[in-house]
Structures are given as C-alpha cells and as structure tokens.
Amino acid sequence: MFFLINQHLNYDYHSLTCIIIRSILSLLTSFFFNIYIGKFFINCFKKLKIYQIIRKNGPKTHFLKKNTPTMGGLFVIISILTSIILYSDLSNFYIWSVISVLIGYGLIGFIDDYKKIKCNNSKGIPLKWKYFWLSIVSLIFEYSIYIYGQNITPHQFIIPFFHKIVLHINYFNIFLSYFVVVGTSNAVNLTDGLDGLAIFPLILLACGFAFISLLTGYSDYSDIFNIFYIRNSSELTILCASIAGSGLGFLWFNTYPSQIFMGDVGSLSLGGSLGAIAVLLHQEFLLIIMGIVFIIETISVILQIISFKIRKKRIFLMAPIHHHYEIKGLPEPIIIIRFWIISFLSVLIGIASIKVH
C-alpha cells in the first residue's frame, strides 16, 4: 500500500530515508494494532476457555496461572502481517521467504496448542511429528533460497569478529540453515516459560537484525562496517521492525502477572522467523551471540537429559534453567529481568562484533 502511494509521489521507495521511515511506521503500527486487538483476543479466549495447560511436573507456582488465556501469538502474527502488507515491498523475495516460515510455523504451533487444549494435557502434537513438519517448512524455505534466491544472495556466511573469514559451503548450507531455523524456533519455545521471558529477548533480537539488515542492504554502509553486501536485503528492516513492534504490543499484556501467554503458535513462528532472517543475512553465528539467552536455555535442557541418561543424576533442579532458579526460591520477576539484562548485553556485544573498516 505504502509502495503504491510512493509510486504516485515519484519518491525513491528504497532510499535509506524511506526505509527508516517505513521501519518506524511499521513498528508503531504493529505495536498500536496489537494493543487494539489484544484485549479483544484476551476476552474472546476467556469466553472460549482457551487456557494455558500447565505441566503436572512443572513448578507448583505455575498452577496459579491455569486460568490464563494462551495462543496470544495469533494476534502477534496478525499485527506483523498487517504491518508488512502496509509498508513493505511485497515483490521482495526476502519478505516472502520469512512470511512463509512465520505462517508455516505459526500453523504448526496453532495445531499443537489446539490439541493441548482439546485433550487437556501438555503433550500436544507427538514430538516426532512436530519436528517432521517443522523440518518440512524449514527445508522448503532453504530450497527456495537455493533455487530462487541464488541470483541475489550467495551461499556464504560470516563469522563475527573475523569478517575477513567468509565460508563458502554451497549445498551444505541447506542443512546448516535447517538447524538454525528449526533450532531457533524450539529454543524460543523452551524459553517461553515465564511471563515476558521470551518476548523481550525476541524484541531485542529483532532490533539487532533490523540494524544489521539496514547496513547489509546498502553497499556503501556494508563496506564501511565490513559487512557482506546483500542486494535488496534492506527490506528485512521493515519486517524486523514489525516483529519488534508487535512484540512490544504483546509484552503490554504479557508482563508479570501475565494476562495472556504466547503459546506455541507464537514462540515457534517468531523463533523460526528470526532464524530465517539470520540465514538470509548470512549471520547464523551472530544469532548465537545475540540470542544467547535462548542458547543457554536449550543447552540446559540438553545437559539435563544427557546427565540423567548417563549418570542417572540431574544437573539442575529442573530444566530449562529458569525453572531451576524458580525452585531455588528466586522470585519470578527477578529471574525475568536478569534474563532480559543478559539478552540486552548479548545484542550489544553482537552489534559490537561489526568492525568499522
């Protein structure tokens, strides 16, 4: 829509100034739209009794949240898509690539949440089938990049702090990127266990990638900051801004004590989308740095499983690690804020890894 208006005004739609303006408008639109429809969804979910299913073996304090609505990721996705339609160039390959992951993973998460609510248990889709469908969407995304995106983006990725080292991995990139997209979606899903714990790091991560994509899309700036230039990738700035704005709108309702939870429909779709953005920008390693909170949470689960299977002993009182601190008696708001601080610092470190040429 904004694109059509600019055609009549004869204005450079892809200029740096216009990209920044559209990004700000995208963030504000998705934020206020989320605020506007959020209360409606919360009331609607309460009437339909779409409540969070609490794990029986989880922390006892979580049973106080059993009447809290879930599947809030639905209106997060709606606000993101609305913002993208209004302000992005819909002919851009990168935009549709990320949208496909957002909708695909959102659909899988929706089915998973629906099954949990219908069956009144926390299992949802069987794990093997869940990973199967996540893998299918990821592989389609990767294949489309290889087939349709090969003329606009090379199959390379960059190592933070060592920008002179650019790895050319060709076909192996499909499998590596698969693990990035699927892994990020599940890492966010594991982290989404406390009020606002996952959404704020996602907002910071989206802001970090908005900055990176802005620099990457312009050859002059990519040369100055010694970042690999990727033609037309600056359009991802608008998409990242819409994710950040929608996340802020959701955080309005998700702060402690939460009025609604994201559900798998939100955590899988947002995590997968940011993983896809990292792949498109060739910044898979930077995702590890800026998303360190999600990495820590995932590693804590892996270590717990390995330790219990080999030693028959647990490393943590409960995994993911935020539950460990809960059981130790640390108040939930303190755990959340400290994880937010770690996430904020990790994004700053990630941006600092960009060396001025």
Rank of each mutant, 00 (worst) to 15 (best):
P201F: 06
T17S: 13
N232V: 00
T82G: 12
V166L: 14
Y36G: 01
P69Y: 02
P126D: 14
L303C: 08
L345C: 13
K115R: 15
V301A: 13
F75A: 02
I174P: 10
Y87N: 07
S273Y: 06
I174C: 05
I292M: 13
T191E: 09
L215C: 11
K116F: 08
L9E: 06
N43I: 01
I78R: 08
I174Y: 13
T237N: 04
E326S: 03
C240D: 11
I165P: 00
I351P: 12
L317I: 00
Y148T: 01
G217M: 04
L9K: 12
F339P: 10
T61I: 10
I224V: 12
F211P: 00
D264F: 09
F339T: 08
I306Y: 14
D112G: 10
I158L: 11
F33M: 09
A206H: 04
S222W: 07
Y94D: 01
F93H: 07
I19F: 01
D112Q: 11
L205P: 10
L330G: 00
H168S: 10
V279Q: 05
S258V: 09
I85Q: 00
S219H: 14
I169H: 12
L286G: 05
F172R: 00
S300Q: 09
G58R: 13
I42D: 03
R311A: 05
G217H: 09
L236M: 10
L90T: 05
S144F: 14
I125M: 01
Y87K: 05
I306K: 15
S343W: 00
D195I: 00
L134P: 02
I169Q: 11
N121I: 00
F31E: 00
P201A: 06
Q259F: 03
I292Q: 05
T191M: 06
